[in-house]
Design a binder for these strands. Structure first.
Lengths: 198, 198
DNA sequence: TACTGATTTAGTACCTGGTGATAAAGTTTT
DNA sequence: AAAACTTTATCACCAGGTACTAAATCAGTA
């Protein structure tokens, strides 16, 4: 009574999984048409496969995107600043997540590592509007998914009012340095006309 | 019959808009508790404000993220590459959208401008895995919301197998140069052990 | 052949988070 | 007070399910 050559079910499970993966917005009813089985079978199959219902799937996707939206573009500072002495130094922590890596290699895309350092360099300058004017950076070793980047910024020089500041940033994973950068930050004491990209 | 000093409704509309913006996953029922009005009022308000129901909101977010998930693999290159001569030069276009700017100033965050240039510098190198090792960059003027950035990359030198390439990138808005960068890209002919962040 | 067990189908009740229409009450404004 | 606007209250209905029970179908034996 167990089964040899009782594939139709497993085959259907495969197809079902694939169909939903291809189009997560498909309803059970539509699936019955594609697979030519009753809606109850579809539902049993979903249960067995642990695939949630349409609305749950959409909710999950929405939540996932909502989280990554607020961790990416909404955050004007990338990484959590855990220490800040204005015009002197600062430390921030940023953990590399799925959203930050190349899918094929799980290596963080450079601009995220750059963004953490850049954000910190800007944050450490005590000014209403501070913008990056230039930077000189080194990626010392690739950063992988899950690694926690600790960036330390040191203000090296501040010249006068409405002028440039030099900030040096080192990023570590553990005690390994993975990134180093020298930033020139424009500070606009008073006026907000200035140069830079951030 | 029109109204002067009939704020409570508009005030509520404002609050409603804000509440939903803060937490798009809120139900009408929860909103009645926050705003102390009946659920019908909430629904009339949503109608007037053109705010779709919870499920519709989740669906939109899910669809948006689904689209951007499929444009994110393309997102490995930021900007549209419109011309590419491998190991020689390339051009990409990237329009600054809401997601790319500081809300307070509508100035593009530096890392997006950097990311376009960096992506192009990597793409122009004809190698399976190419990673940024270092960069020397200048933000010449701020880039604003809606501006179209045209990045041009030129390969300046390629040294041997499994070695460094130097790529220079200029980014323009119209005929104004807004960014300039010198990138050192590692190319790993064969092996994929190499350095860099991108 | 009849029994066993898995698989599939059917049907009902119920749930959430709404829409839409209609009516009634409350509040201003005129 | 009458007209106009705003809010609340009902009621019927919908999609896309869950949860549960029951029956039908099919296969492979014992």
């Amino acid at each position: 009574m167990p089964n040899i050559e009782r594939l139709p079910k497993r085959q259907r499970h495969q197809q079902l999984t694939q169909l939903i993966e291809e189009n997560p917005f498909i309803t059970d009813r539509e699936l019955t048409r594609m697979l030519k089985v009753s809606i109850q079978t579809i539902r049993l199959d979903r249960m067995e496969l642990g695939i949630p219902e349409l609305r749950e799937r959409m909710k999950l996707m929405a939540e996932r995107s909502y989280d990554s939206v607020r961790s990416l573009p909404l955050h004007e500072v990338i990484g959590d600043i855990i220490d800040l002495e204005l015009d002197r130094s600062g430390i921030s922590v940023f953990e590399i997540g799925q959203d930050h890596v190349f899918s094929r290699s799980s290596i963080a895309r450079g601009h995220h590592v750059f963004a953490q350092a850049n954000s910190l360099a800007v944050a450490v300058i005590d000014d209403f509007i501070a913008l990056t004017a230039a930077a000189d950076i080194r990626f010392i070793r690739p950063v992988k998914l899950g690694e926690k980047c600790i960036a330390k910024a040191y203000v090296r020089s501040i010249s006068g009012e409405r002028s440039k500041a030099k900030v040096e940033v080192f990023t570590y994973v553990g005690d390994e340095m993975v990134f180093q950068g020298n930033f020139v930050i424009y500070r606009s004491a008073g006026k907000q006309e200035s140069e830079g990209g951030e």
